[in-house]
């Protein structure tokens, strides 16, 4: 799988042989438009391509939202890991902490030689962990999030490819249709001239 750099997660080449994690279907490139359209109604072909385009666009926005959410989550988990490390370094001393009592109001608390840390897991569940256990839980969560992020970026690359292909298909079918209509007009004119 392609590695993701911190600098720009989008600067990765999509590897064509990888099947996308969300099983998004691949659009086929219409190499021979005449062959493709010959026994079909052009309007219907347009409709189908437009539908496919809309679906891919929907996937794109969904994946973009997903990526920004996962990126944020990954940062939060990294911050949490840093905090666990920081608190563990101070586990043999007492220190004072300013915490947010309410929005815009802060109060002070005294922490005396902390030996454990509490993690809010969601769904009204909070658990007490040793520093090592907490680090393990957070790291596991971060690995999962990073993997999902990597897959989402991969999928987004794939979807963007499909959007481009669909766009090109639409243009090719449209151009073909115009050429056919011109030919029909010309043949109609020549018939009239012959008469």
């Amino acid at each position: 799988m392609a590695t993701i750099t911190n600098a720009d997660p989008y600067k990765i080449l999509f590897e064509q042989d990888i099947k996308t994690a969300t099983n998004i279907p691949m659009v086929t490139f219409i190499s021979n438009v005449e062959e493709f359209v010959k026994d079909k109604d052009v309007e219907n072909v347009f409709k189908q391509l437009q539908e496919a385009y809309q679906k891919y666009k929907f996937f794109e926005s969904k994946l973009s939202n997903n990526i920004s959410m996962l990126t944020q989550r990954s940062k939060q988990l990294q911050e949490s890991l840093d905090i666990v490390d920081h608190v563990e370094n101070k586990s043999n001393e007492s220190f004072s902490v300013q915490y947010e009592l309410s929005e815009g109001v802060y109060s002070s608390a005294q922490v005396n030689e902390p030996k454990s840390i509490y993690l809010w897991l969601g769904a009204n569940v909070m658990l007490e962990y040793s520093f090592e256990e907490a680090r393990e839980v957070l790291r596991k969560n971060k690995d999962t999030v990073d993997r999902q992020l990597s897959e989402s970026i991969q999928d987004l690359g794939f979807v963007k490819d499909q959007i481009t292909t669909t766009d090109v298909n639409v243009s090719r079918v449209y151009n073909y249709d115009i050429i056919q209509k011109r030919k029909l007009k010309l043949s109609g004119k020549t018939e009239e001239e012959e008469k």
């Binding site: 911050e79 004072s96 009592l101 109001v105 802060y106 002070s108 005294q110 902390p114 509490y118 993690l119």
Partner: peptide, 30 residues
């Protein structure tokens, strides 16, 4: 009390307010 370090990490501690609070009065002043 459980001191909130982030929205998901808490430490056991004791309230040490001395009946004083730090209030955000705007533009980065407390």
């Amino acid at each position: 009390m459980l001191v909130p370090l982030t929205s998901s990490i808490y430490l056991p501690g004791k309230i040490n307010s001395n009946e004083k609070v730090l209030v955000d009065i705007g533009t980065g002043y407390y």
